[in-house]
Amino acid sequence: MSESKSVENTESKSPMEKIGQNVYQKVKSSGVILPLILLIAALSIISPDFLTINNFKNILRQVSVNLIFSVGTAFVILTGGIDVSVGAMLAFSAVIMAGLMPTVGMFPAVLIGLAIGFSLGLFNGLAVAWLKLPAFIVTLAMMLAARAFAFIYTGGYPVSNIPMSFRFLGSGYIGPFPVPVIISLGVLLIGVLVLKYTTLGRFIYGIGGNRDAVKLSGVNVIKYEALAYGINGLLAALAGVIMTARLSSAVPSIAESAPFDAIAAVVIGGVSLSGGKGSLWGVFVGVLIFGVISNGLNLMSVPSFWQNAVRGIVIFGAILFDRLRARS
């Protein structure tokens, strides 16, 4: 790593170089790339099946759903908020979508599902930004209610009347690439562009950094803050679409741990819980860390009861590592 922190003349670089350097900087500054590399190195030594292209494809497919809703959660956390209703919004929009699919058709059902996710998220956002209610409590209430309605709507049974062609979204391939991987990487890329190149992204960072200052600059902070939650709901619903397609059914109890997986990945990825700081590249690395761990533990046939213990230790270790690094 180079020591120089001086400002290079950015004009002489091509846009691609600039983006490349930007990605490198962002990932490096998120701090968690090193633990990821160490993890990959260790698992490669322990398990001969780990370091194969097929296995990496597997990991990417396994993390794709997590990546999608973690990007959404990152939007919310960047504003300085929190959302624990991701899993419930996912389940609720997924069961409605699956339930409507036979009658209204595949595309309209998906659109309705996404719209429901966006609306639920926006409701959270307006409660937080406009009514000034605490985000944790608002989304906790949403978590309980949306999850309950998912059960009420389905009577507790999975909705499995799913057309075969829909499964393409969950288990299909385009060329050598699994469809969920393409979608999730697309979401990541769009998320990065939105945060860096749109007014929405700018104000999301601004609101997380100092909401009052943004407001006193004449910005409609309520709109932008609420939108961040709306996007989180939308991406939760999109994750629900893919999960439903993969499982060929929408299960009301699905994705219970989603908000916590998302928060853990976002924070491990270097996004500040108080908002305003961090990048989606870091979140990507955070999601990968969890994917790699699960994958490695499965390859080593570690009993599932133990897996969460390892996850807990990793979360703690990664955060500790990051703090120590920041201090030195």
Partner: peptide, 13 residues
């Protein structure tokens, strides 16, 4: 002054 600035953002921003 702190109400006029977002300290976590850059000068140009």
């Amino acid at each position: 002054r702190h109400n006029g600035l977002v300290e976590t953002l850059q000068v140009d921003e």
